[in-house]
């Protein structure tokens, strides 16, 4: 697949230790994958990422909860593609349009094979889940201050999914709690 080489390559041990956390317990590893949707930047723990799909064909699931964007065929498997903004609980979320990229996350068994699985890996299941995003950014080292998410600015936010906000020279990046993000939001039963 078109996973960028730098994602596949294991991180070198040259990174500085993490900065002291201000916000809730950090669950992310040392390297973060950044991505953009609807003009906002996000990041997730790179350890969770399995691969990235380019312009995947999405089969819609009618009458499904809005967090589900549809199903994607991935080499004989069927993965559930989530809508990022709906999952985060943004009221204004508008799903639809062409899917540019889909970040595919590792399943529980895949995470368990890692030498050091992420702390929240027990939240992973056996099903494959992806999230549809507009653009994939760089991989950044997770260092520096993590600010708690400002509750006022983003209405309807599902706080469990968000670890905090990383202030970066290029702007604010919302760091996801990947395990919680991939879990079924409460009260979303159809």
């Amino acid at each position: 697949m078109d996973t960028p080489r730098r994602i596949a390559a294991p991180p070198e041990a040259t990174l500085t230790p993490r900065g002291s956390p201000v916000a809730p317990a950090r669950v992310a590893g040392d390297q973060l994958l950044t991505f953009r949707t609807q003009g906002r930047w996000y990041a997730c723990d790179l350890l969770w990422v399995r691969e990235i799909l380019r312009q995947p064909a999405i089969t819609p699931v009618d009458r499904a909860p809005p967090v589900v964007r549809g199903l994607i065929h991935l080499r004989g498997q069927i993965l559930t593609a989530l809508d990022l903004e709906h999952r985060l609980g943004f009221k204004s979320a508008s799903s639809g349009g062409e899917a540019e990229r889909c970040i595919v996350f590792k399943t529980g068994p895949e995470l368990a094979r890692l030498a050091q699985p992420p702390a929240d890996s027990e939240l992973a299941g056996n099903d494959i889940i992806g999230v549809v995003v507009d653009h994939i950014g760089d991989i950044i080292a997770d260092r520096g201050t993590l600010l708690p998410p400002p509750p006022d600015t983003i209405s309807g936010l599902d706080h469990a999914c968000v670890a905090g906000v990383l202030p970066r020279p290029e702007g604010l990046i919302t760091l996801l709690n990947t395990g919680a993000f991939l879990s079924v939001p409460s009260g979303s039963a159809p």
């Binding site: 699931v61 065929h73 099903d127 889940i129 159809p190």
Partner: peptide, 25 residues
Amino acid sequence: PLGRHLQGTTFYSGATLLGQGRIAL
């Protein structure tokens, strides 16, 4: 089987892959 986000749906019992990799519910 459908993923966990679709477990509660009443209309589908699963999904399948058809020829050409198309998905059918």
